[in-house]
Design a protein around this nucleic acid. Structure first.
Ligand code: MN
Ligand code: MN
Ligand code: ZN
Ligand code: ZN
Lengths: 140, 140
DNA sequence: GTCTTGTTGCAACTCAGTCGCAAAAGTGGT
DNA sequence: ACCACTTTTGCGACTGAGTTGCAACAAGAC
C-alpha cells in the first residue's frame, strides 16, 4: 500500500506526457514551494533565484501548458494580471483584502452544495466556478 | 407619492456631478437598453448606431467613470475582456455557458447569507464579491 | 454672454501576454 | 552511446485591450 496518494507536480507532468526539462523542474519546484498566488513576473523572479537564465516567455508558456493539463489553477483577481497556484488538495475559494491585496483561502461545503442544486434547477452541469470575495478588515 | 423610486442612469449621473454630454446620453441610453453583458467594442457598435462619430476611447473612459461612481458593474468573465451592465435593481450572480458564452443571471439569498457569516467569522467586512459559475447544458 | 472646468477626438503609447523561428534538449528505440 | 523524432526554449518581434497627453470643445454656474 502506498505511503501517499499525493503525486508531485513532476510526476503528474510525466503522466501527462510532458517533458521534464530543467526550466520546468525549476518552475514546478517553485510552484510547489509557493503558499500564495504569485503572478508570472513574481514566479519568474522566484524561479530565477534557483535557476537563473530562464526566459519569462517560458514561464508564460509553462503556465498555459500546466493549466491546460489541469495541474495548476489560474486566477484573475481584480489587479488585472493572472495569478497561479498548484491545484490544491481540496477546492477552496478566496477572500481578497482590498487594502493589501493579500489572499485568504476558505471553503464552504454549504455554498458548494447550493451551487450544485442551483445549477441542476437551471438545467446545467457545473464545469467550474469561482467565488472571489473582496473584503476589508472589520473595524470596531 | 412617487410613481417610481427607480432613477434613470442619466439622473444618477447628474446627481453624481457628471456632465450630461451628447456622447454620454447615447452611451447611457444604450446601457439601459441592453439586457446582456456587452464588452466595450460591442457597446461602441451599438452606440454608433444611434449616435455615429463617438470615439471608442470615450466609451472606455465613460465605462471607467460610471464604474467609479457605482453606476455600472464591470465583469471579467474568462473571455479576457471587460463586460458591463447597468447596476441591477437587485444583486445577482452569473452562470456562463462555456459552449456558447451566453450569460444567465441567478440569485441565491442563501449563498449571500453564508458569505456574510463566513466573512464575519474571518473578521472581514465584505466590500464586493463575484460568483461566476461556468456551466454546460445538462445532458441526459 | 462669459468663465471655469469637465469632456472629447485623436494619435501615440503601455504592458501583459503571444508567437515565429532556429537552436537546444528530452524521450524512446536500437 | 547513438540516432531519429518531437517537444521545448530563448529571443525578439508582435498583438490587442485599455490608457493617456493634449488641444479643441462644450456643460453648467453666475
Ligand atoms: Mn488558493
Ligand atoms: Mn448580470
Ligand atoms: Zn467554491
Ligand atoms: Zn452574489
Amino acid at each position: 500500500m502506498n505511503k501517499s496518494v499525493k503525486l508531485t507536480l513532476t510526476e503528474r507532468c510525466r503522466h501527462a506526457g510532458l517533458r521534464i526539462t530543467a526550466p520546468r523542474k525549476a518552475i514546478l519546484k517553485t510552484l510547489e514551494g509557493s503558499e500564495d498566488h504569485p503572478n508570472v513576473e513574481e514566479l519568474h523572479r522566484r524561479v530565477s533565484r534557483i535557476a537563473p537564465g530562464i526566459n519569462i516567455a517560458t514561464v508564460y508558456r509553462t503556465m498555459n501548458t500546466l493549466a491546460e493539463h489541469g495541474l495548476i489553477e489560474r486566477h484573475s483577481f481584480s489587479d488585472g494580471r493572472a495569478r497561479y497556484e498548484a491545484v490544491p488538495e481540496d477546492h477552496h475559494d478566496h477572500f481578497i483584502n482590498v487594502e493589501t491585496g493579500e489572499v485568504v483561502e476558505f471553503r464552504s461545503d454549504e455554498i458548494e452544495r447550493i451551487q450544485e442544486e442551483l445549477a441542476r434547477k437551471y438545467g446545467f452541469d457545473i464545469v467550474s466556478h469561482r467565488l472571489d470575495i473582496y473584503v476589508k478588515p472589520r473595524k470596531g
